[in-house]
Write a protein that binds this DNA or RNA. Structure first.
Length: 409
RNA sequence: CGGGGCGUAGCUCAGUUUGGCUAGAGUGCUGCGUUCGGGACGCAGAAGUCGACAGUUCAAAUCUGUCCGCCCCGACCA
């Protein structure tokens, strides 16, 4: 991608409407644009990051045997009456009437919808278990949307739902998803804390939350000064008796053992070995995809801009071209990197060097290559690593070898 | 929904207290020229429903009222 032709419009100053770091940086770097409070569009840079996040999630979910589907956002309210959640979730639902005067809503979550689908297709225990998942937009009429993408009215979520014939099956799937989440957050390079949590309006007995420590988090955990374990309640550490310190956390994932709440309410039954009807035993497993985008920008950034992890960055490399006569050489290097599977943003704009460096830091691709003086002198390229500011001077071949090693696995 | 703050050019803001020339600056954008390894400079140019509506006045960005929108704190948060 040539920067001069791209739909990237960075701002020089912090947008006034943004208070927290992620919101500021995402707007400033033109990753997102605001439509209204709690509603955002994703611009090309933001969409590239989202695509990377969702592909990490897809890979891990698929390799754990989950099957992706897509459900409707528009739903008849009757679907919600069976479980009574038309009442309990009334305040956050966007509800309206269609032209036939029928009550409908924009789905704030999809347990009812998935249960309806499975009800219509469940038959024999022989096909079980299933883990079905969706990556799509959900709608909640938040009383106070805030912090940009961290609490918005329209947001992207990955939700998975497991269906089992017995408790043992649920326990196995729950553990499988728990481990799957650890893999996902490792791929995303997000340091997470997993804790047992309340199930809230979801129902069911056991649940775990996946949280990222951050000053702007809306949840609170207590961290032990001694063994660094996290606890839900304040008390002295049961492990080492040391003091606990309050830490704010951003919730990025939540998994639940739902049991039969939905399957009983909606008649989602299967036939067991003896030909007897039983309610399916369910679990559900959510990850806030757009919230993760913001969380990474929040916790992996500095005064200069965002520092995207390798797997998530909009491009692998920003190639800063500091002399018009080098554009051809830059394109040729870009093509060689492309063959190695790397994506490159070539900054070919007719602006001064300082502007290009500032934007490279702001946009936050993990590697910055600089072609200028040294290339004219001896065909060497400077490379700067965004996350630790390390700088080297390399020949073109060394650059290619460097990236071969960096992206080996 | 309670408390606080804000709304003037794409973006960041001045001007509002004390009403008064054709509504300003910086930045961004367009053109020309000089610069060219860390947000350079000169000249020329385009860009505004001063959030909206109503009122007071000879005169309103400025005063009054109502409404709308945005941000923060609280309540709420699968």
């Amino acid at each position: 991608m040539l920067f001069s032709k791209s739909f990237i419009f960075t701002l020089r100053e912090d947008p006034r409407i943004a208070e927290c770091r992620s919101h500021k940086l995402l707007l400033k770097g033109s990753f997102i644009s605001m439509v209204s409070s709690g509603v955002y569009s994703y611009l090309p840079l933001g969409q590239r990051v989202l695509n990377n996040i969702t592909s990490i999630i897809r890979n891990r979910m698929d390799s754990n045997g989950a099957q992706e589907l897509l459900m409707s956002a528009l739903q008849p309210i009757e679907m919600w009456q069976k479980t009574g959640r038309d009442q309990t979730l009334d305040e956050v639902m966007f509800k309206f009437k269609d032209r036939k005067d029928k009550d409908v809503c924009l789905a704030p979550t999809h347990e009812e919808a998935i249960t309806e689908i499975v009800r219509a297709n469940a038959g024999s225990y022989k096909k079980l278990p299933w883990i079905l998942y969706q990556i799509q937009t959900k709608f909640r009429d938040e009383p106070r949307p805030r912090l940009g993408l961290l609490r918005s009215c329209e947001f992207i979520m990955k939700d998975a739902y497991s269906f089992d014939k017995d408790q043992q099956g649920l326990d196995d799937n729950y553990n499988k998803m728990f481990n799957c989440y650890k893999e996902i957050f490792k791929d995303l390079e997000l340091g997470i804390v997993a804790t047992e949590a309340d199930s809230g309006a979801m129902g069911g007995d056991i649940s775990h939350e996946f949280m990222v420590p951050s000053e702007i988090g809306e949840d609170i955990l207590f961290c032990c000064n001694g063994c660094l374990k996290y606890f839900k309640e304040k008390g002295t550490c049961v492990q080492c008796n040391a003091n606990l310190e309050e830490v704010k956390m951003i919730e990025v994932g939540h998994i639940f053992k739902l049991g039969t709440k939905y399957s009983v309410a909606q008649d989602a039954l299967f036939l067991d070995k003896n030909g007897k009807k039983n309610p399916l035993i369910m679990g559900c497993y959510g990850i806030g995809v757009s919230r993760i985008l913001a969380t990474i920008a929040e916790v992996s950034s500095d005064e200069k801009g965002i520092i995207w992890p390798k797997n998530v960055a909009p491009f692998d490399v920003t190639l800063v071209v500091l002399n018009d006569s080098l554009l051809e050489a830059a394109i040729s290097l870009r093509d060689k990197l492309k063959i190695q599977g790397l994506s490159v943003l070539v900054d070919d704009r007719a602006v001064t060097a300082g502007v290009k460096f500032k934007d490279a830091y702001l946009i936050g691709n993990p590697y910055i290559l600089i072609m200028g003086k040294t290339y004219l002198e001896n065909k060497s390229v400077d490379i700067e690593i965004r996350k630790n500011n390390n700088k080297f001077n390399l020949t073109e071949n060394e650059v290619l070898n460097f990236f071969k090693k960096e992206y080996d696995n």
